[in-house]
């Protein structure tokens, strides 16, 4: 499968945010998009995910595909436990018995079975973000989009969650597109790093790690 973004242009009113961004994404590899805060990285991700319209350009490979998304915040539903939160995104994608089996399989994969019936309020920030990443992996998609998923975590939790992500990537490969403004994160997790300029964002450099 080929995933590409070609000559993406986006304006917010008169303000040009994205200025002809072109890049391709290697299947089953992690592409890190690195750029200064507020340069339009999230807008670019939202265009790929179909959440935001672009003014011109072309997106190839993402249409009619299930896409997993990890946000800056965990975005877990407070009144649903871990099992129900993961199950929520799987409903309609597979039969009920398979949902349960999938949740169990993924929780077991990362040794988090004991948290199956925990509610978000009962979990630490790092643990909630791990569940959010696990939800993204349990979802039957080929593409995983991550928007600064470690931004809200303290340094200890950040390392734990990054290791957790690496462990999952090693076990369950996905074509991952991750946005960050942290060089260390990009070089630790990325197979390819795309550096964007400040607004309006253009591709400045592509580094193969």
């Amino acid at each position: 499968m080929e995933y590409k973004a070609i000559d993406i242009v986006k304006y917010y009113g008169d303000l040009k945010v994205l200025d002809g961004i072109t890049m391709d994404f290697q299947p089953n590899k992690t592409t890190c998009i690195l750029g200064p805060s507020g340069c339009g990285k999230t807008t670019f991700l939202n265009i790929i995910a179909g959440l935001t319209d672009m003014d011109s350009g072309e997106i190839i490979g993402f249409e009619n595909q299930y896409i997993s998304y990890v946000f800056q915040e965990d975005r877990l539903i407070p009144w649903k436990n871990v099992k129900e939160n993961i199950g929520f995104v799987l409903k309609g994608k597979m039969v009920e018995s398979k949902i349960e089996a999938t949740i169990d399989r993924y929780l077991k994969l990362v040794n988090l079975e004991e948290y199956k019936y925990y509610y978000p309020k009962e979990l630490s920030g790092g643990m909630r973000q791990r569940i959010s990443i696990l939800r993204a992996f349990a979802y039957p998609s080929n593409v995983l989009i991550m928007d600064e998923p470690f931004k809200s975590l303290d340094i200890n939790n950040k390392q734990i969650v990054m290791d957790f992500f690496k462990e999952l990537m090693a076990k369950k490969n996905r074509t991952c597109i991750m946005v960050t403004h942290d060089m260390e994160e990009a070089f630790t997790l990325g197979d390819r790093i795309v550096i964007l300029t400040d607004k309006p964002a253009r591709v400045k450099e592509i580094i193969e790690v």
Binding site: A49, L51, Y66, I67, S68, Y69, F71, R75, F88, V89, K91, G92, K93, Y139
Partner: peptide, 8 residues
Amino acid sequence: EMAQVYDV
């Protein structure tokens, strides 16, 4: 928004 991204 999360639910929409996951096509729920």
